[in-house]
Nucleic acid binder design. Structure first.
Lengths: 202, 202, 202, 202
DNA sequence: AATGAATGAGAATTCATTCAT
DNA sequence: GATGAATGAATTCTCATTCAT
């Protein structure tokens, strides 16, 4: 990829996160990338195409790493740790990219093709959680809900750290991992489930 | 409050959630509220003032309910349930409002005064989690991290439901509550810490 | 005339002078007059009608005073003094009104009918200067030029006083009168054309 | 200076004179300059900045010519003629510019920096009239009043010519010069002050 | 008569996009 | 390929005018 294109993608990512899609101007992106306004149109068909390109690369990169780094067929806990590790290292490597995923998910300017690059990852995660629930390792909940809880833990930490209430460090993310696991793991049946709230799941 | 002002606030909330701040136009808001464009400026000093007004009302309403409905000094679990219930019923009553809180939190157009209305709630929640951690009911983590985990559970469910992957119903939210509690609750010490993942926290 | 109408005319005069026609808003005029916006339309057909009304009253008042206070058929110098006195006392009584005449003379929003109210005064002044020139009291110049010189003296003093460079007082206006008279008076013929500029009068 | 910028300045000058600041629209200026609306903002920060730029150029040009063309230390009469000649040729070269100076002098949108470009000219003129009064060539009046009388003669002629009552020609301006000189020159003391009006200045 | 909330056309300004160089 | 001046449609905001009370 030409270097200017890469710089444009990076500048666009930053600015879209900071100011939103409609709040970011093309000349602004060009300036941050150190190129002329017109150059943006050499590499991208327009602003909408640009944001989709950014999103596709970010999501595609994450999906690819999940596909490569999560061991198929491994035991649930090992897979969980691999999944979490992929998200963690991705988030730590580029905080902006995570925020981008968070914010630009279902906006009107996001094309279906862009969302499609996430499909393999969605399937992978769904399979993981479905298998875990079936095995009794996870709570007997729909996989989407289990995913929502784990993703929520990650995004929650990320959001709070962006608000300045939390450091965004590996240490914090490791602690969050414990919470995320507990959120989805089937409670131990041995003891009288003392920490359960409300109706006990007996 | 004049009826037109209320309709404008509601229309603005909806549209800002759907299309973002910069992606929403004033005539659009006016049209949805059933008033003329100029009328918007009769009630709000400008677009920026309007979005702040919406955010302040939403956050203020939620903060107020927390202040009124969370029993001071009650036991941690009861407080947790009250907190969750406030968020749940708020989110169910106005799904848009929760999305609004999620999206428009630290944008450049949000004034510090607007964020200030959330301060009492932040304090209340911090106190709760600090107390719970001190009592050994919660994991020994910074209150902000505990808050992030619980908030993450809620926002995660909400986000997935907006993506169409999950229903946004009381039933789902009740299930999420179990997960949220488990995420922050101190693991039972009796058994050999079976829920711990990776390094044991010993 | 209803008191509100009078207050509106006065407020309009002030504001049009301060900020120009297009720079003044109807609600602003109403506020300064202490009435509601809608009331303006009870007394005037619109903004354009209002400015014409103001101009007609100011010019008409001045024209009327000239007609009444300048003695017909008197000697030129006496008439000159009467004319100057009318302008002086008018200007001192309402500085704003003079500025109004100065600024709003040939703007696109001034109707021909409005300008027509000045006709009698123009005729009166023209007759005066024509007569004075014919009698050899004034320089042998077109009456319009003589008028321009006298009016220029008055407006010059007024403009400089509005700029803060000069007091706008009877004393200053009296001194200006000497200059205005000298500007138009035929130079004494005794010496060899001593008032000519350029060639030395020696 | 780019040609488009020059055309914009010229178009703006014309239109501001014709219709006033608030009565002139930006698209109108652009159209007269033969450029697109947006182009105006390429060269000027906004309408207010534009009018100040026009005023500064006009006043600066005139002030520059005065500084260059009025001989320092020359005799009063020669200086007077030089001053009048600068104003005359300036006014004849660009009638609109003189009207612009006349109208847009102390409006709320004129920045102090803009007025500051006239300072050197003000000082030059003030020195001239102070010196002339001290030498007994001019009437013993404040320099500002002498300036007002001379400027009044010029502006008076100009205003009447804009009203269609007078041609705006070198011939008329030459005649006005005689009047302007007489307005400020000390009256000849030899004869019994026959041109004095009212109280004799003895 | 008087009000002032409501209107919507019109103004200033911005910015995605193009294109001559 | 690269540029950035130029464009004009779209946006925010204003304000003359109306009209129900």
């Amino acid at each position: 990829m030409p270097e200017k294109q890469a710089r444009l993608l990076s500048a666009a990512l930053d600015l879209f996160v900071e100011k939103g899609f409609h709040g970011t101007t093309i000349p602004e992106i060009a300036r941050r990338a150190g190129v002329a306004t017109g150059t943006v149109y050499l590499y991208f068909d327009g602003k909408e195409r640009l944001v989709n390109e950014v999103l596709a690369r970010v999501k595609g990169g994450l999906a690819g790493r999940l596909a490569r780094e999560v061991p198929r067929g491994a035991d649930i806990r090992a897979q969980f740790e691999a999944i979490w590790e992929v998200f963690t290292s991705f988030a730590l490597a580029n905080e902006r990219a995570l925020a981008f995923c968070d914010l630009h998910n279902h906006a009107p300017y996001v094309a279906p093709e862009t969302l499609a690059v996430w499909e393999p990852a969605r399937t992978l995660l769904d399979d993981h959680f479905r298998r875990g629930a079936a095995a009794g390792v996870y709570r007997p909940l729909p996989p989407a809900l289990l995913r929502a809880l784990v993703a929520g833990a990650l995004f929650g930490v990320h959001k709070f750290s962006r608000a300045g209430e939390l450091a965004f460090s590996r240490e914090v993310l490791d602690q969050a991992r414990e919470g995320a696991w507990a959120a989805v793991a089937a409670p131990p049946v041995t003891a009288s489930a003392p920490t359960s709230v409300g109706r006990s799941p007996t």
